[in-house]
Structures are given as C-alpha cells and as structure tokens.
Design a protein around this nucleic acid. Sequence first.
RNA 1: GGCGCGAUAGCAAAGCGGUUAUGCCGCGGCCUGCAAAGCCGUUUAGACCAGUUCGACUCUGGUUCGCGCCU
Length: 318
Amino acid sequence: MNFEKTKSNPRAIFLMGPTASGKTGAAVELYSKLPVEIISVDSALVYRDMDIGTAKPDAKTLAKAPHHLIDIIDPTSAYSAANFRSDALRLMADITARGKIPLLVGGTMLYFKALQGGLSGLPEANQEVRARLDARAALIGWPAMHEKLALIDASTAARLEPNDAQRIQRALEVFEITGESMTQLYAKQTSEALPYKLLKLALVPSDRKVLHERIALRFDQMLTAGFLDEVKALKEKYPTLTADSTSMRCVGYRQALEHLAGEYDAAELRDRGIFATRQLAKRQLTWLRGMDDIIELDCLNPQLNESVFNEINQFISD
RNA sequence: GGCGCGAUAGCAAAGCGGUUAUGCCGCGGCCUGCAAAGCCGUUUAGACCAGUUCGACUCUGGUUCGCGCCU
C-alpha cells in the first residue's frame, strides 16, 4: 500500500556534492539530455551581486541551463532552510505540472535534509528576540545561557554543547516566542514526508588531495577575476551590509572583508580563503556519508557514463 | 675567524628535571528557520651525538645549521 503510494509519486532527482566537485557542469549535462528543470540548492547562490566568490554559474551557462533559486534576494536579506523548503516545493510542483522532472542541484546539505525530511512547526527567526538573547549572553556567557535552557528544556540542553551559541539561542528563542520548549514542539508535529520518488546522486572525490588542489586553483581564479572588487562594490551598493550579515558569512566574503579592513595581508587572505573552503567541503562530505540511498559518482572522473544515464532513464520511466 | 643568540609537531609559539601547552592546518563527527553557519573530538614534537640524573624537551659538553654583532 505504501509501495503503491510511492509508485504513484512524481520523480525528482537530487545532485549533491561538496564545493568544487563540478555540480554545475554535471547539471548542465543532465539538463541537455533529460526532461528536467534545475533548482539550485545553495544558500549562497540565492544572493544577487555575489557572483565571483560564490562560483555562481555565469550568464551564458544560466541562459543555456536556467537555474531556479539563484539571484532571488539582496545580500542584506536573510534566507533559511524553511524558506528554501517552501520555495522548492512550490517550484517542484510547477515543474512536475509542466511534465518535467525537478533536478535539485547543490551543496547545502541542510536544505536537502529539510526538503526531504521536513521541518517541525517552529516559529521563524525573530531579530528582536535574538538581539535580546545576544545582549544577555554577552553579559553572562553562553554556558550560562545553556544552564538557563536546561531549566526550561532539559532534553534539548542535554544534546547541545555549552558553547553552541547558535543552537542555544534558537532553542531559547523558540521558547520565548511560543512558550513551549523545542522538545515539545518537535513531538507535537510530525513533518510530512516529501511526496516525490527520489534518485539521489552525489559527486564525491575519490582523492581528497585532488579536491584540495581544485579548491586552491579556484580560489586563485576568483582573486584574479576580481573577487576583491566585487566585495568592495557590494559594500558600496549595500551600505548596511556588515560582517554579521548572513550573506557575509559565506566562505571567502568574510575573509575578504577582514583583509580589506586591514586585518591581514593578501597572502593570508589566500590561505584563509582556501582553508575555509576546504573545511566547508569536509563538512559537506560528512553530511553525504550519513545520507541514505545515495549513488556516489567520482567527481574526479566527471563523465556521466552510460550506466548512470541508464539508471536515471530507468528511474524516470519507471 | 671571534663573540652572542637560537634550533620544539605541516606552520606559528610557550612553560616545565617526573602529570595535556596553545593557536592555525589536517583528520573524524554533530546538525530542525544564519548552514558557505555554529559546535565537539583528534593525529603529528623537542636538530644530532655524548654526559649528569632514579628520570632530560628542560642541566652540561660537543657537532651541524640559522640569525645578529665584531675583526
């Protein structure tokens, strides 16, 4: 019965991978050969005017293979996993209605997880509440905030580290807004499963060293392509942008800002940018290792060979 | 050539005669509205040779190398 229901679900394809694994190239190839529409699953590509540092597909590529959810907000705005999920669900329904298959491509693994697994009915972020919590934490420190959390939600506190400012803040925020603990809210609402049958592909490097080389090469290319000018232009166009803005927490941008502020020289900018990108790739790979039903493809051998296409075609026509 | 100083992990950098320096990097992991974020864990030392000592990265002598000063 469950099987019947699954069978009748429309199809969707995930194409995941760490940064610099060649996702865009693979997506364009799939787009040219299959009845798909591409949805970007990337927390950085949503920002307008952030092109070089995010390795956004260029205009020519986007003209040839359009991506949804690229350039949808200003760098002064914030986006979230919940925003993504509702945007993606809407687009997937549209695409399916057009008789196409959604191809979700990107490296923001939390977004993939939220899309597939759903989110509980929690309140959205509230800047005033967060500012208040930040102020309090500045006084007493996050470990003390963690102790406060333990009083209202022992179970959540137990699974959070005393220094995990971000999650402690969110748990306290949720309680302050709703009067209920995160634990209670999780239990209350079971998130609905994604009503699509999925084929999950992952581009994974067979040799981490080679991925690191690619990352270094790409960061150097960004610098010569005028990455620092892009960041300067960003500051001029959006004067309210600060190092705390969500968009400026992206790999490379934060370091560029620090360098432009004179905190360190160009050589160190290069090092730090590359380190941050490697660490991002590592976290992405950790996510991937823990995901189920993944078909791994070696991103160092990027040919989408016949057997992969056979698999996809079979999945589509099943 | 003489004098002085130094030699600690992939890099930077301390203390210490006997229990983990630390930071960065690297590696593993966690992950419910900031996720390209945030957090947790962790591998790799004491230039070389000899001596003192129950015990030396730590004290002594020598060798090599580097830095500075002098002739």
